[in-house]
């Protein structure tokens, strides 16, 4: 472990994983696999719990704001664990001088998104800190839900087998590009909108098919590449994806080419990777595509029997390359 925490420890890549394992899990006595939600058995009922803190600059961006994000993110962490999200709590750390009208906008969009997702925000906390002690507003949401029958394995990947198909519910990278655009870092305007959305209805639709689902995880900070690497590490199996099957919207693709970004590492807030046996693939795809947040779903790859725990991308040129975890944040090319 390094002597000091740097921003890279929070980037969602390898260093974040190291921090979780070596700092927190060992001291809290948590065991692998680390999933998006913890599952606890309470009076014979399997419950899922999760928590997440939201800090984002800027707090308003095309397609959402920090409040909407705080609801969607936690709802999604519950849903991908195979749970029906039910209750959220919300804690606010607010910087003194924060405009009340902005707070109204944020809280109203939280209420709206909770309504959309069918969850109730039932408790909360507020702290106001001196100017400069936090950046405008930080929100932490904690969620609880009930695990659907026979679904507690979904977050753990224990049922994943060679030959399983990998599905993604739509194009990747939009959230990152939308936020960069809102930060005015792109030096030109883009019309890319964040994909920020609650996925519990889409996931319910999939689980309602009664098809076997072997794994689900939502793609967030580290992008698709990180989730694929986590899956490979959790299962000890190889993962192979086809570059030209991974959906990327044209404006995102164009910006990536220009800036030198790889869309597979860009953040998402409304995307989920779903792993299913090959024979269930068509049925699951049909269910996903019937939901608005899954219209552009694609089958992007396969679990291989390969024991070398690597993520391999079949490139457009017919070659292959390793898709590694990313170290640190992605930066634009300067050459």
């Amino acid at each position: 472990m390094d002597e000091f925490i740097t921003l890279n420890h929070g980037s969602g890549g390898r260093l974040t994983g190291e921090l979780i394992r070596e700092m927190f899990a060992t001291r809290f006595g948590m065991n692998e696999p680390f999933t998006d939600s913890a599952i606890a058995n309470i009076k014979g009922r399997e419950m899922a719990f999760t928590t997440d803190s939201y800090v984002i600059e800027p707090i308003f961006f095309p397609g959402g704001n920090i409040g909407k994000l705080a609801v969607c993110g936690t709802v999604n962490d519950l849903a991908v664990a195979g749970a029906i999200p039910l209750y959220l709590t919300a804690s606010f750390i607010i910087e003194e001088g924060f405009p009340v009208k902005d707070l109204i906008t944020i809280v109203e969009s939280m209420a709206q998104e909770a309504k959309n997702a069918g969850v109730k925000i039932v408790a909360g906390d507020t702290k106001v800190v001196e100017k400069g002690k936090c950046d405008k507003i930080f929100i932490t949401t904690t969620g609880a839900g009930v695990i659907r029958d026979g679904c507690s394995h979904i977050g753990t990947a224990v049922k994943v087998k060679p030959g399983d198909r990998l599905i993604i519910n739509g194009p990747v990278g939009n959230h990152s590009i939308a936020v960069m655009g809102a930060r005015k870092q792109l030096s030109f305007t883009s019309q890319v909108v964040s994909d920020c959305a609650s996925l519990n209805h889409l996931i319910n639709r999939v689980l309602d098919t009664r098809c076997e689902v072997h794994f689900m995880r939502d793609l967030t900070r580290g992008g698709l590449a990180t989730v694929l690497n986590e899956l490979s590490a959790m299962t000890g199996m190889g993962v192979e994806v086809e570059e030209d099957k991974i959906p990327v919207d044209e404006p995102v693709k164009g910006l990536c080419e220009m800036m030198g970004f790889d869309p597979l590492y860009l953040a998402n807030e409304g995307k989920v990777l779903i792993v299913v046996p090959p024979e269930e693939c068509d049925k699951v795809m049909a269910a996903i595509r019937s939901e608005p947040s899954g219209e552009k779903a694609e089958v992007i790859g396969i679990i291989t029997g390969n024991k070398n725990k690597m993520v391999i991308v079949k490139t457009l040129t017919g070659g292959t390359r390793i898709l590694d975890m990313h170290s640190g944040i992605q930066l634009p090319r300067i050459c």
Partner: peptide, 13 residues
């Protein structure tokens, strides 16, 4: 002699 080329050469194999 361009870092962009180095990255592209390896990315595309």
């Amino acid at each position: 002699v361009c870092g962009g080329h180095t990255a592209a050469i390896h990315r595309f194999g």
